[in-house]
Amino acid sequence: MSLDLFLPAFLAVKNGFLLTVAITIASFALGQILALPLALGLTSTRQAIRVPVSTYTFLIRGSPLLVQLFIIYYGLGQIELVRNSFLWPVLRSPVYCAILAIGLNSAAYAAELLAGGIRQLPTGQWEAGRALGLHRTALLLKIILPQAYRSVLPAIGNELVLVMKGSTLASAVTVLEMTGAARVFVARSYAPFETFLIAGTIYLVMGAVFGRIFRFIEIKVAIPGR
């Protein structure tokens, strides 16, 4: 290991940093947006809704993210219908494909988490809401979801770190995010330790920052005295 290589390695890795942050946040947001309807589907009493949703989470959770990314990026482009559709500009771009794949993947995991949070609420919460004459939407928004989200908040924070780690897979479809940029620099400089240590440190710091943010939110939304 040599110290003179740390600065050029840092400069090389730094170029991928913003892309890593962008992919992480966009995929996480997409995952969370999709997770809510999926979680409601998983906890639905109607089989016609529950079965397709649980099939989706089973398929996504049963296969590696890398395969899902390759199906979306390399596979879908093979279909003429997709190439002619308005979605093509999105599906042609490796960055958007990575966001889509990681987002769809994270949605399945987050949906199972949230469904767990909804299921563990006592049925009395639903009954009390109904007895008060609350409409289904109001019942969900005012009673069920705030409690469910509170209980799964630490797990959602964990999911954000997992999404950040998943964002490295974008480098497998030519995106030069932090890991991709690091790998390119290693090929040029033959300095794997310096480069990957710097990238690793940045990932650790990012993970710690995400952890802090979620700890802060947890404290903010905690019910006082409980």
Partner: peptide, 8 residues
């Protein structure tokens, strides 16, 4: 990230 560990 696991991929980074593999590369390292």
């Amino acid at each position: 990230p696991e991929l980074l560990v593999i590369f390292l």
